[in-house]
């Protein structure tokens, strides 16, 4: 791969050479420059504007570490639930007829097309103490549950919003898998469980990794879901960033974002290092 791209570089046409230019301009304006600002604010004092580590070290105080820990915990739980729900449905889909696969795909995509705020508000009305779920439970004579305002509600919200992003990459890797590998495994003595464990799962790992990434990253930095569905004690790192921003403390906003970003990059790099990426699949980083 690298070899052919090297030889191709020399005889690229003008169009090929400058095809990336619009995106490069965009990236510089809206990604690189803002990142430099984030870095600048993160290391400068809020009142004097002098260089300081105090914003960064604030992240490592008990207050923020607890918030960060809670964010990690809830995001991990949500990601795990998405994986447990998403993997089997992706496997199920790949075994359906092509027509059924397209229909299921549309059904899974449908929530994504609906506005994010509306979806979260809809969840609120479902989960309220006097909401649809509890009304239904009490009609049946069952005890009602207090869900809205708890960590459970936040996790439900994350799963609800991000589940499609787990299913899609896993499905896309699985549907490209050579069916004869499955036949070869059963030919060599694997029952259907063995086929999944020894062939399908290892080969779909790249999809699983990108699914995890695509669910975990937005989950850990969300603020809207926790504000609407969580209570006062479910303040997440995203909420903390947003609070500093609305209070016009850009230095703390920047430092928290900066540290969060670094932690995510290091974490994902480690995950990718231990999962061989030569299959390509659906890697994000």
């Amino acid at each position: 791969m690298t070899h052919s791209s090297k030889t191709r570089k020399s005889n690229m046409s003008l169009l090929q050479r400058y095809a990336a230019a619009p995106h490069i301009v965009w990236s510089v304006l809206f990604i690189i420059v803002p990142l430099i600002f984030v870095g600048y604010y993160a290391f400068t004092d809020v009142s004097t504007g002098e260089f300081t580590f105090s914003n960064i070290s604030a992240f490592f105080t008990k207050e923020y570490l607890l918030i960060f820990g809670k964010s990690v915990k809830l995001a991990l739980i949500a990601t795990a639930i998405c994986l447990v729900l998403g993997y089997p449905i992706a496997y199920f889909m790949t075994n359906c007829k092509p027509k059924t696969q397209r229909l299921l795909m549309i059904l899974i995509m449908l929530p994504i097309w609906m506005n994010f705020l509306i979806r979260t508000y809809a969840l609120m009305t479902l989960l309220q103490d006097t909401g649809i779920i509890n009304t239904f439970l009490s009609k049946l004579g069952l005890p009602t549950m207090h869900i809205l305002g708890t960590e459970t509600a936040v996790v439900i919200g994350m799963v609800y919003d991000y589940l499609p992003y787990m299913i899609l990459p896993i499905y896309s890797v699985m549907s490209k898998m050579d069916h004869r590998l499955v036949e070869a495994a059963s030919d060599l003595g694997c029952n259907s469980f063995g086929v999944i464990r020894k062939v399908i799962f290892p080969l779909s790992l790249s999809g699983v990794i990108s699914g995890i990434t695509m669910v975990f990253v937005p989950s850990i930095s969300t603020f809207y879901i926790s504000q609407k569905l969580g209570g006062v004690d479910t303040l997440l790192i995203g909420d903390a960033i947003e609070q500093h921003y609305t209070a016009a403390n850009y230095n703390m906003t920047a430092s928290l974002s900066f540290v969060l970003m670094l932690i995510l990059i290091v974490g994902l790099a480690i995950v990718n290092h231990y999962t061989d990426s030569d299959e390509g699949g659906g890697m994000l980083i």
Binding site: R180, N191, E279
Partner: peptide, 20 residues
């Protein structure tokens, strides 16, 4: 009898080796 319980093995067209 499913494939995995038959005392028969197959060499597939294009081999179907496990890439992982």
């Amino acid at each position: 009898v499913p494939a995995y319980r038959r005392n028969v093995n197959t060499v597939f067209q294009r081999y179907a080796l496990f890439p992982h």
